[in-house]
Amino acid sequence: MRQLLLPILGCILACSACGEPGKLNLFIWSEYIDPKMVKEFEKRFDCKVTIDVYEDAESMLAKIQGGGVSLYDLAVPPDHLVPVMLKLELLAPLRHENIPNLKNLDEKFANPPYDHGNKYTVAYQWGTVGIYARKSADKPIDPTWGLFFDSKHPPGPFVLIDSVRDLVGAALKYKGHPLNSTDPAQLKEARDLVLDAKRRCVGFEGSVGGKNKVLGKTARAAIVYSGEAARGMTDDSETFYFIPKEGSQIWLDNLAVLARAPHRDLAEKFINFILDPAVGAQLSNF
């Protein structure tokens, strides 16, 4: 009797598992996806999407290295981190046959220099790094990175972005140096500017946090990404965003399946879903 019950129990458990909805674990920047899109994906593919968020790329990488590579299915790394994650063997190759909507990817985002042939990543969203600030008739803002790095022309209380690459890059551009400089003297100059600005700022925040400080009027200016600035200007017409006259950078975030993703098939379905033209438009308008 005992021998008969075991196969029956196994069949019951197998059938129960077949009826369970799928799961997808998404690791993404905060405020970076429309909840309505998530609900539509869950409905269409009978699954549950669990979202965990981060505010800076360094935190994302540390958490993935600390065990997240087998916990999360998808992450959204910026362009400059993709080569690092490939070297660390943190990404799984994309099976293009499961992502037919790759044909919808704009030519300028296909075959990027950091991932030839889109073997591991697909473009998610792009934008710029700039300054988000509050208008003032009494004290106009000069469109320069000097708002943060020149102590003689402070805009008022300001927030620095909690991102090494973006903050050091802004300091390098202010001094007229290349964004990707490896020159020790130039990097030391940028470091000194950042340290001086640190003593005068009201704190470090991720892009979302910086935007919220300006909206909450606890800071007049912050270094943010263009997406947060666009949302902030919608919430408060007395705020604005600009690229400093010294120049800045264009960033490109990417969808990537992690090397030990527990739900790889569903992750690739999600990428294909995002590449649908109507869904992509909804994402960009969020």
Rank of each mutant, 00 (worst) to 15 (best):
192 D>P: 07
53 V>S: 13
251 W>P: 02
14 A>I: 12
154 P>Y: 07
234 T>Y: 05
229 A>N: 06
257 V>G: 04
167 L>E: 12
132 Y>H: 05
241 Y>V: 13
110 A>R: 13
266 L>R: 10
151 S>H: 11
161 I>H: 13
154 P>R: 08
129 V>K: 03
159 V>L: 09
126 W>T: 13
69 V>I: 07
106 D>R: 15
266 L>M: 11
197 A>G: 05
132 Y>C: 00
90 L>E: 05
168 V>L: 00
19 G>V: 12
133 A>E: 08
22 G>S: 11
217 K>W: 00
221 A>C: 10
260 R>T: 14
238 E>R: 08
138 D>A: 14
285 N>G: 05
79 D>L: 01
7 P>H: 09
207 S>K: 00
255 L>V: 09
99 I>G: 07
145 W>I: 03
97 E>S: 13
206 G>H: 02
236 D>T: 04
132 Y>G: 01
277 P>D: 05
141 I>Q: 04
29 W>Q: 02
264 R>K: 07
72 Y>T: 08
121 T>P: 00
268 E>S: 00
138 D>M: 12
66 G>Y: 00
172 L>E: 02
137 A>W: 05
78 P>A: 01
245 K>L: 11
218 T>L: 01
87 K>L: 05
163 S>A: 12
198 K>T: 14
35 P>W: 11
58 E>N: 01
50 T>V: 01
88 L>G: 01
9 L>M: 15
75 A>T: 14
67 G>S: 05
35 P>T: 10
75 A>L: 09
63 K>A: 06
107 E>R: 13
34 D>C: 09
55 E>D: 08
134 R>L: 04
150 D>P: 01
34 D>W: 12
99 I>C: 04
219 A>N: 07
160 L>P: 05
254 N>Q: 10
212 N>T: 06
64 I>F: 02
55 E>I: 03
51 I>C: 00
194 V>H: 06
84 V>E: 11
282 Q>R: 13
160 L>H: 09
24 L>F: 12
192 D>T: 12
158 F>E: 01
